[in-house]
Amino acid sequence: MFDKQTVLVLGAGASCQYGYPLGGKLVEDLIGLHNNEFMRNELALIGKTCEHYKVFEQVLKEAMPPSIDFFLETRPDFIEMGKLAIAYKILVHEGPNITARGIKSAWYHMLLDALGNTPAKIIANKLSIVTFNYDRSLEHFLHTAIKARFNLNDVQAAEVVASIPIVHVYGQIGLLPWQKGADDAKLPWGCAGTTGTALKASKSIKIICEENTHESPTLVQSRQLLAEADTTYILGFGFHEENCLRLGLDQKSGSRQGGRYGLSDARVYILEQKYGLKLHGQQDSDIPWLLENCKRYLASSSG
Rank of each mutant, 00 (worst) to 15 (best):
G13H: 06
I146G: 05
G82M: 00
L291E: 14
C244G: 01
H168Y: 00
N97S: 15
Y53N: 03
M64D: 07
I122E: 02
G95D: 15
T6A: 02
S255A: 10
F78C: 02
G102P: 06
Y53I: 01
H93Q: 14
C209N: 13
T144Q: 10
A162F: 11
R223H: 01
A227S: 12
D77N: 12
L249I: 01
S128D: 00
Y20G: 02
E292W: 06
E37Y: 03
C294H: 09
S285F: 14
Q251H: 08
L225I: 00
L30D: 01
A162Y: 08
K180A: 11
S128I: 00
R136D: 15
A266N: 08
G190H: 08
Q282A: 13
Y233M: 11
K126H: 05
A299Y: 14
H34F: 08
Y275S: 04
D69I: 01
G174N: 08
E292F: 08
A229H: 03
L84I: 04
A44I: 04
E57T: 00
K121T: 13
A201P: 05
Y297W: 13
Q257I: 11
E80D: 04
N35Y: 13
N243L: 05
E272S: 03
H280W: 14
L263G: 03
L45R: 15
L45Y: 02
S253P: 05
G193V: 13
G32A: 03
C16E: 10
G24D: 05
G303F: 05
S67T: 00
M81K: 03
A120Q: 15
E292L: 07
E80K: 08
N153M: 13
L291K: 12
Q224S: 15
D250S: 12
T194W: 10
K25R: 14
F38S: 11
R101P: 12
M64G: 03
I205H: 09
F239Q: 07
A106F: 04
L45V: 07
A201D: 12
A201Y: 07
A14R: 11
T218Q: 08
T99V: 14
G276C: 04
H143R: 05
S285D: 15
A148N: 09
E210G: 05
V92I: 10
F150E: 11
L8W: 00
H240T: 10
R223A: 02
Y297Q: 11
N153F: 10
S202D: 10
L290A: 15
S222E: 06
L152I: 05
G82K: 00
W189K: 06
G303C: 08
Q221G: 10
C209K: 07
E210H: 15
I208T: 14
M1Y: 12
